[in-house]
């Protein structure tokens, strides 16, 4: 590192410093500045407008007793667990199958990935229409002879979160597939050959050899999916608007509603700070691991 830096010291670095100025300014003022401001507001008694009355962690206490927040947390936990499991499983299965030299590979890849190019608003509205209890799939089931069939999950408080899972798995499974496919193609062919010579059945090769070798792909996919879980907002707005009742409320929507509609800045920023801490807790170990890996490979 030091040697590389010395080798590079040819001429003035002033232009480089100037070129970096916009990014530095953005990082200092618009990232760090706003984050500290948000954390600070969460420690005050601000309502409609920010004030400077320090109240310690009282807002977090209020938050911990707020039904809507607790529902949001429970919803996002259910959603996150189901969505990540389903997206990883389906994405990996699709990649593993597409990797078996199937016909029309690129067509299949396009079909699985196209939902990812569309927005959550489009995704949410499309699924809301299909799951419509009067005219959607339920009517289709009735029309083809299942007169007693029910598929009204989107209006049922105990089931609505599953509809968000279905829509977002449809949206993201292709992304997982693309990441996994890249991982699979990165596995040395010799490893396959060696395992086959040893007479291992395909599923055992996958479970005991290939999947452990692909932990980098899994980690990347996990981190991407996990951050999209924490950020989940548009889909809930478009598909159910948090309803019925508060059955599909999510933390990001809680923050937005309390910031801009309910005029409780301190509570909203306390919720936002909680989200921030969650993300840092999730991302930090992965980031550390990636950094160590890069250093071991001699890149950093």
């Amino acid at each position: 590192m030091v040697a590389a830096a010395k080798r590079l010291r040819i001429g003035s670095r002033l232009p480089a410093q100037i070129a970096l100025a916009p990014a530095l300014l953005i990082a200092l003022v618009l990232y760090c500045g706003t984050t500290s401001w948000t954390v600070w507001i969460s420690l005050t008694s601000s309502r409609m407008l920010p004030n400077s009355v320090f109240v310690g962690l009282r807002q977090y206490d209020v938050l911990a007793n707020n039904d809507r927040w607790l529902a949001s947390i429970a919803n996002i936990a259910t959603f996150g667990a189901l969505f990540m499991t389903a997206a990883l499983t389906i994405g990996f299965l699709l990649a593993a199958m597409i990797d078996q030299k199937v016909r029309a590979e690129s067509l299949l890849r396009s079909v699985f990935l196209y939902p990812f190019s569309m927005s959550f608003i489009v995704t949410g509205l499309a699924w809301r229409w299909m799951l419509d209890p009067t005219l959607g799939f339920e009517k289709l089931l009735h029309d083809i002879g299942f007169a007693d069939a029910h598929f009204d999950w989107i209006v049922r408080p105990d089931r609505v979160i599953y509809t968000l899972v279905i829509a977002s798995v449809w949206h993201a499974a292709g992304l997982v597939m693309a990441i996994m496919l890249a991982g699979l193609r990165g596995v040395d062919r010799e490893i396959w050959n060696a395992a086959r010579v040893d007479g291992l059945p395909t599923w055992r090769i996958f479970v005991f050899i290939i999947i452990p070798m692909m932990r980098g792909s899994f980690a990347t996919a996990c981190v991407l999916l996990a951050t999209s879980v924490v950020k989940l907002y548009d889909l809930s707005v478009a598909m159910t608007n948090g309803g019925p009742g508060i059955a599909s409320e999510v933390p990001a929507k809680f923050v937005m509603d309390y910031l801009f509609e309910r005029g409780n800045l301190a509570l909203a920023t306390a919720a936002a700070t909680t989200m921030l801490i969650t993300v840092v807790v999730v991302v930090a170990p992965w980031y550390h691991w990636q950094g160590r890996k890069a250093r071991m490979a001699g890149i950093a």
């Binding site: 618009l30 990232y31 706003t34 984050t35 401001w37 948000t38 507001i41 981190v223 951050t227 924490v230 950020k231 933390p251 990001a252 923050v255 937005m256 910031l259 800045l265 909203a268 920023t269 919720a271 936002a272 700070t273 989200m275 921030l276 993300v279 999730v282 991302v283």
Partner: peptide, 9 residues
């Protein structure tokens, strides 16, 4: 990785 909600207000 950080949600926009942290910066937005």
């Amino acid at each position: 990785f950080i949600p926009y909600q942290v910066f937005i207000y």
